[in-house]
């Protein structure tokens, strides 16, 4: 069973859910990428087995619409929760429309982020926490 920080049950015992973590590399031991739409890799993880798949972000270099298309990818993959550093307004709208929970402010190793999520230590965000184009190269973080 997975319970979030508001004590809401988000997955029953024995159930698994597919979540996605933005990552700077291809493994669970890489660092969480602080950008959502323009992250380097998406790591899709099954919460029960920790079976994962790393996918290079096809939208990372878009001049516009990266957040939207990354959100689209999450919806297409049937992801239930996204763990990342920051999420902008368009990505937020797309993810929300897809019924996907968004957890921002995540840093450190991907594996630790998954553990925290499973341990119920994270609280989903209600709002985008950065503006448009936040993850564009050359922009100060």
């Amino acid at each position: 069973m997975i319970i979030d920080a508001d004590s809401k049950i988000i997955a029953e015992k024995g159930d698994t859910m597919k979540i996605c973590i933005t990552s700077q590399g291809k493994t669970l031991d890489d660092q969480v990428d602080p950008r959502f739409g323009r992250c380097q890799y998406f790591i899709f993880v099954e919460t029960d087995t920790l079976a994962f798949e790393a996918v290079e972000n096809p939208s990372a270099q878009f001049s516009g619409g990266a957040g939207i298309q990354s959100g689209q990818l999450m919806a297409g993959q049937g992801v239930k929760a996204v763990l990342t550093g920051n999420v902008g307004p368009n990505a937020f709208q797309t993810l929300t429309a897809g019924g996907i929970k968004i957890y921002t402010g995540i840093s450190g190793k991907v594996r630790d982020a998954v553990d925290k999520f499973k341990g119920g230590a994270l609280k989903p965000t209600e709002n985008p926490n950065v503006g448009s184009k936040f993850g564009m190269p050359g922009k100060d973080k």
Binding site: G64, I68, G71, Q72, A75, A97, G99
Partner: peptide
Amino acid sequence: YHAIAVIPPADGE
């Protein structure tokens, strides 16, 4: 221009 997202049907929605 990546201006459209299509959320596939899921969970009866």
